[in-house]
């Protein structure tokens, strides 16, 4: 028996190839592209962040207006202006939560359901490339909400300073916003991504994340008020808020706020992130070793 291979004009690609170690960047780019595609995914949260920026920016402008300053003692108005940014941070975090609902909390489960892992692992994509790519892409999206927006406000705050002394005194706000933005970006990227790896159906992954964030979070906050303030650190917004207050040295005077120890808040967020990363790594590795494919 003899065989023949006919030359049909196909030639193996011989040009430059992206090194394996850099393929996670392709996943990052893909994540960004798909997230931007429809109104229901990233754009809704982005729109909310833009609205927040305008409102907070307006408040900042008003607080620094001469007329407003002259109404009360100057120091009170300046304090209000300084308080706008930490207040706006909590709003930006809500926009980030909205993005987790429409994108992050269903990413891995969605890939599992659609059989996308087959496409990834049929190529020379390693589990770590997948994890890095997803984390990178989603972190950029989250950072637009939790990092870029507040940084813009901080810039505006600096721009509205009337004297060099005030500018120098206000300069640290940039660093504080950057630190807080980075922490919020990590939390709002990694934790919901962990939830998306926990449940294999994307709709249920999303619901479990929402229940954890809303129901368990508010229970933890309430339990913190009743029993142990440390418990409230399980509520992600409360833990983030505690770090915000510590960084900006301000206090909220209205609403339910548990007096979470700063170390507990940091520990809670760290544990959340580590556990989520563990779940994510476990799921991707198990998919890689246990076979890939869609559910249907």
């Amino acid at each position: 028996m003899s065989g023949t291979i006919h030359d049909l004009g196909y030639q193996r690609y011989t040009g430059a190839r992206r090194p394996t170690s850099a393929r996670w960047r392709v996943i990052v780019r893909h994540q960004l592209t798909t997230a931007w595609r429809t109104w229901w995914r990233f754009k809704s949260a982005f729109g909310l962040a833009v609205i927040i920026s305008f409102i907070a920016g307006g408040l900042l402008y008003l607080a620094s207006d001469k007329l407003i300053r002259s109404l009360g003692s100057g120091s009170i108005a300046v304090t209000f202006a300084d308080g706008v940014i930490p207040m706006a941070m909590t709003w930006y975090h809500r926009a980030a939560f909205l993005a987790t609902l429409t994108i992050t909390a269903s990413v891995v489960a969605g890939d599992l359901q659609s059989g996308a892992f087959t496409l990834y692992f049929a190529r020379s994509v390693r589990p770590r490339d997948y994890v890095l790519g997803k984390l990178g892409g989603l972190a950029i999206l989250t950072a637009i909400l939790t990092f870029a927006g507040p940084l813009l406000l901080a810039g505006l705050r600096l721009g509205l300073c009337e004297s060099t002394e005030e500018l120098v005194a206000t300069l640290p706000v940039l660093g504080k916003v950057a630190i807080l933005g980075a922490i919020a970006t990590i939390v709002y990227t990694v934790v919901p991504l962990g939830f998306s790896a926990l449940v294999t159906d994307r709709r249920y992954a999303l619901a479990v994340w929402a229940a954890y964030y809303l129901v368990l979070g508010s229970m933890a906050l309430l339990a913190g008020l009743v029993a142990n303030h440390g418990l409230a650190a399980l509520d992600l917004p409360s833990a983030l808020e505690r770090i915000t207050l510590a960084l900006f040295d301000v206090q909220f005077v209205r609403g339910k706020h548990a007096d979470i120890p700063l170390a507990t808040a940091i520990a809670s967020l760290s544990i959340h992130v580590v556990v989520a990363l563990g779940i994510l790594g476990w799921r991707v590795r198990s998919v890689r070793t246990g076979g890939v494919g869609g559910s249907g």
């Binding site: 995914r41 609902l101 709709r203 619901a207």
Partner: peptide, 16 residues
Amino acid sequence: LVPKHGIALTVTYFLF
């Protein structure tokens, strides 16, 4: 209205 994001939209609607 939006089959793909029904849960997300409902939670968002009530929350926001």
